[in-house]
Every structure is written in C-alpha cells, then in structure tokens.
C-alpha cells in the first residue's frame, strides 16, 4: 500500500509572489510542497493531509545561490546541491550534514527549506549545521519580505502565519570561521541520527578559538544551541576543551523518548560527537 492519500490538489505557481498569494488565499487549508519527502509520508505519521499543496518546484529563483562573506542559499536547493556548491570552511558542517543525511534517492530531492520547516522532524541534519553557523532565514509573506534568525524560526515553526514561505537561507562565512558536523546512527548510513552535532568556531591568527557555537539535533524535539564557552581561549581542536564543552552541552539537554532510542542514550553520545567534530577542525585549517 502506498501510504499517502492522493486526493489533495497541487498548484505550481511560477513566482514567489504567486506562491505567497495562493498560500495566503488558501490559509490553513494549504502548505508549501518542496521535494515532498516529508509531506508524502504524512499518512505514515498519522497526519491528515492538507486540502491543497503549493509546489515550489517551478520557481527558478528559489534555486539561486551565491557565495562570499555570506553564503546565500535558495530554499529549493537539494541536499545534493548543498554538497557541491557550498565551499569554504564556514560551510563544512553544512556540506557534511547534507552528504551524510538519508540516501542518494532522498538527497537528490529533499530541499534545504523542507529540512528546516518540517514540523515535528527532530533529527533534521542540516538544521544543527545551520544553527551553529548563525544562519538566518529569509521569508516572503503577505507583509512582504523579512528576515529572522534560524533559532527563532525553529521555535515558532509550528505556528508560522499562512502565506509565509522561506525563500533563502543566509550563512555567514567570515574569514577565520571553521565548522564540522558529526552524527551517530545505529547502522552506518541512511537513517535518522540518534544525535547530530555541529561545531562552528572563530579562530584568531594564533590558532586560538575566540568565539564558538555548538548545536545539537535529534535529542530534543527541536535542535538547539548549547553552551560552547569551554572551547573559547583554547587552541582549535583541543580535546580536553571539547570534552568539557560536550559535557556542558549534554547537561543542558532534555531528551525526547521514542522507540528509536531512549532519551538517556541520545544525551550520552553527545560529548563524544562534540569531541569528534572538534577533532576535525585542525585539519580544515591546515587545508
């Protein structure tokens, strides 16, 4: 049995303005459709499908990107796109997260914005990479375009106003910023993470960390930033500092319980994932 209900209508507008207009008119009856890898499984999760979906597939501007001191990534870029277009050490975590998520058949289809906006998806891999990188989301809506931090979008993602659309994600890439991503799955690939971790650091000329962020996904219902102070003032890659930071981050987590993994286990693996991510950083600097 295919698990989706096939009756909903799909509209395919050709511009952001038309998509916003259609989503606004339809209100709570509709939602955006990106790659569909989350929406097409709504039935499996016991969710009632919307009456209408507004596909973003024909909106070419949502696939644009640019690189520079800020990497600007269109909402409709796929995980596969992200593995190739995002260059530079500030985006390493994002590249790694995109490459490690799911399988080729899903990575070729699932989008950047779909990963961020999938309500109830705790294990999204791109999200911690973007959070640690201080990403912002650009939104279009009935009130016009605006911008907000990813962190604030995530905590409100199940109550966003109708008519709103993520159009792009902005990832700052200042000189001296390095990042890395790690995740643990029960088998090797193609599964949701037990926990996923991204570390992003700003390093001074002497190789010492002067600012740092650690984000953790899959443990709590929504990925969060944890305390990364323990990394600051230490040489990049310092293992003791990483262990201390990992423990501090783990101590602040309230894990969810679900059949895939007990909550205590999700928390217990976090310090090791932080250490592994931090251990990657010096190699990036040497490059």
């Amino acid at each position: 049995m295919l698990t989706t209900v096939v009756s909903p209508d799909v509209r395919s507008p050709g511009s952001i303005d038309d998509a916003v207009r259609q989503l606004t008119d339809l209100g709570a009856d509709a939602m955006p459709l990106a790659g569909g890898t989350w929406i097409m499984r709504a039935g499996l999760r016991g969710e009632t499908p919307r009456r209408c979906y507004v596909s973003l597939d024909r909106i070419a501007e949502l696939r644009r990107y640019s690189v520079g001191d800020v990497v600007e990534l269109g909402a409709q870029l796929t995980h596969r796109d992200l593995t190739s277009i995002t260059t530079g050490p500030a985006a390493t975590a994002l590249r790694q997260a995109a490459a490690l998520s799911a399988f080729p058949q899903v990575r070729n289809v699932a989008t950047l914005a779909g990963n961020i906006a999938a309500t109830g998806f705790a294990a999204a891999d791109l999200v911690p990479a973007l959070l640690a990188g201080q990403a912002e989301v650009e939104l279009a809506g009935p009130e016009g375009p605006h911008r907000t931090t990813l962190a604030s979008y995530l905590t409100s993602r199940d109550q966003r106003p109708s008519g709103e659309l993520i159009t792009a994600v902005r990832l700052p890439a200042p000189p001296g910023r390095f990042s890395a991503f790690e995740r643990l799955t029960v088998r090797v690939g193609g599964e949701y993470a037990v926990a996923n971790v991204a570390v992003s650091v700003d390093v001074d000329a002497g190789g010492s960390v002067h600012d740092a962020r650690i984000a953790v996904g899959a443990v709590e219902p929504v990925a969060t930033l944890g305390p990364a102070r323990a990394l600051i003032g230490h040489p990049v890659g310092d293992d003791d500092a990483a262990q201390a930071a990992g423990e501090a981050v783990a101590a602040g987590l309230t894990p969810r319980e679900d059949p895939d993994a007990p909550g205590w286990y999700r928390v217990a693996v976090v310090p090791t994932l932080v250490r592994r991510a931090v251990a990657q950083l010096p190699q990036l600097i040497d490059h």
């Binding site: 569909g36 097409m40 499984r41 799911a102 289809v109």
Partner: peptide, 23 residues
C-alpha cells in the same frame, strides 16, 4: 513505500529518486 528500500528507484533528470515519494 516510504523512501527506505530503493526498489522504486527511477531517474528524474538523470538523478535517482524514490518514485514512491515523488509527487
């Protein structure tokens, strides 16, 4: 029927996709 097994793999614009989940 949920994107995990690949038995429905076809190519869309030359890239493998799971046809069971592709609207």
């Amino acid at each position: 029927g949920e994107g995990r097994c690949g038995s429905c793999t076809v190519l869309v614009d030359d890239q493998p996709v799971a046809a069971c989940l592709f609207p």
